[in-house]
Simulated scan of single mutants.
Amino acid sequence: MQIPGRDGLTRRDLLWYGITGLLFAGLLYFADTGEFFRALGRVDRSLFAVAVAIGLSSLFVWAWVWHRFFGQLGIETTVSRTIRLFLTGHFLNSITPLGQFGGEPVMAYLVSEATDSEYEEALAAVVSSDMVNAVPFFTFTIGGVGYLYLFGSLQAFLVEVGVLAVAILTLGGGLAYLLWSPDSTLGRAATRLFAGLEARFDRGEALFQSLQERVERVEALFEKAGRDRRFLVTTVTVSHLAIVAQIVSLYVVFFAMGLEPTIVPLYFIVNLSTIATLSPTPGGSGTYEAAFSWLMTLFYSVDLATALTAAVLFRLTTYWPGLVLGFGTLLTLDRDGEAEPPEEPEL
C-alpha cells in the first residue's frame, strides 16, 4: 500500500480517486444540488455534535479489540499508543485505493515497529482483531433479518442478504477456527504443500525450510491468540458496541435533520451500507454514499437529496473525523521515530 503524497500517486490511484469524484458528482446531480445544500443548512448543529461524539466512540471500541489481542500475544504497548496505531491504520486504509483489501500486512509492520515486537506477532494480533471486529456486521444483519421474519414483513432482497450473511459468517468462522484451533490443520497443509514443491525443484531446500518455519511460527501465534475461549467470547461481545454506537449516532443525525427515526431501518442502513466500503475506491467513498442513499430511500419516503444529506452527515460522524485523527497520529508516529511505513512488508 502506498501513502499518497509520500511516494506519489500511481495511475491506478488517480483512476480510483477520479471514479470517487464522478460518483459524488453523479449523486449530487441526481439529488438536486440546491436541495442538498438547503438540507445541510437546516441541520441542528448541537445535535449533530452529539452524533459525532457517539459515532467516534465506535473507533475506540475497535481499538480496544486491538489492545486486547496485543495483551493476549504479549505485545507490550500502552492504551494510548494502541489507539494511535489503530487510527493510523484507519487513515492509511481509508485514503488508499484498494486499501480495504489486505491492509493487514502493512498495519502489522507499523505495529511491530512501534512496539518492538516481532512481525509475526503483530500480524496475528491485527488479523485476529480484524476478524473479531467484522463479526458484528454479520450477526446484526442476521439478527435483523430474523426479527423481520418473526415480527414484520421481510422483503425479498433482505432474504438474500440474510442468506449471504450466514454464508460469509460460516466461512469466516471456519477460517477463524482453523487459525485459532490447536490441531495444526493449516500447518500440516502447508507442510504438504512445501514438501510437494521441494520435490519438484532441485534447489531451494533452504528457502522451503525457512518458509515452513515461518508458517509454523505464525500458526503457533494464532493458536495463542485464540486459546482462551472466554477471552474470545468477551472480546467479540464487546466489539458489538461499535455497531450500536453507529446506530445511535445515525439516530441522532436523523433528529438533527428533523426526520423521525425508526430503529429497524436505521439498523439495516448502518449494517448493509458498510458492505459498500469494500469497494476499490478510497475508504469506499462514493459507493458507500450511493448504497446508503439507496437504502434510505428504500426504507423511508424521502427524496434522494435528503438521503444523500443523511449519508454525508453520517460519514462525518465516523469516517471523516477518523481520517483527521488518523493523519495526526501518523505524524506523531513518524516524529517519534516509532514507525516508518513500509514499501513492501516481508511475510
Rank of each mutant, 00 (worst) to 15 (best):
R335Q: 10
L178S: 08
E289C: 08
I75P: 03
S249Q: 09
V166N: 05
A189E: 10
E338V: 08
V252T: 10
L295M: 09
A189S: 13
L73V: 01
T318G: 12
G196A: 07
G21N: 03
L266S: 04
G41A: 08
Q2L: 13
G99E: 02
I168W: 08
L85S: 01
V270P: 05
T297N: 10
T115A: 02
F60N: 02
P105W: 01
H240S: 14
I247N: 06
G34I: 01
L323V: 00
A53F: 14
T329G: 03
A176R: 09
L333R: 00
P345I: 01
L171P: 03
I19E: 00
W64G: 07
R12G: 11
R200W: 12
G152Y: 12
T329H: 09
A125G: 08
A291E: 03
A51N: 07
L308C: 06
T329F: 10
S80H: 08
D334Q: 13
V132S: 03
A256F: 07
F37V: 11
E113M: 04
R6Y: 10
G284H: 05
F268G: 03
I142K: 07
T234A: 14
T185S: 14
E121T: 13
T88N: 11
V236L: 14
L87R: 01
G5F: 04
T10D: 05
L92Q: 11
T309Q: 04
S181Y: 07
T297W: 02
T306R: 10
E338C: 04
L232S: 06
L27R: 00
V111S: 01
F292E: 05
W62Q: 15
Q155V: 12
L85W: 02
G5N: 04
T20P: 01
G328Q: 00
G284L: 08
I54F: 05
S94R: 00
T332L: 12
G26S: 04
F222E: 06
W16D: 02
F208D: 07
E260H: 12
I3D: 06
L278Y: 13
R42S: 15
E120T: 14
V145W: 03
E344W: 07
R214G: 12
P182H: 11
L259N: 05
D130K: 15
P261E: 03
V302R: 02
L333K: 00
A31T: 02
P136M: 06
A176E: 05
A242V: 07
A256K: 03
L164F: 15
G34L: 08
I3T: 12
G328I: 00
E205Q: 13
E289Y: 08
F208Y: 14
R335C: 01
V252S: 06
T78E: 13
W66E: 15
F86M: 06
S249T: 12
P261C: 04
I54A: 04
F327W: 13
G283W: 02
T297R: 14
T141L: 13
Y149V: 09
D130N: 15
Q72T: 10
S57M: 12
E346N: 10
A134T: 14
L186H: 07
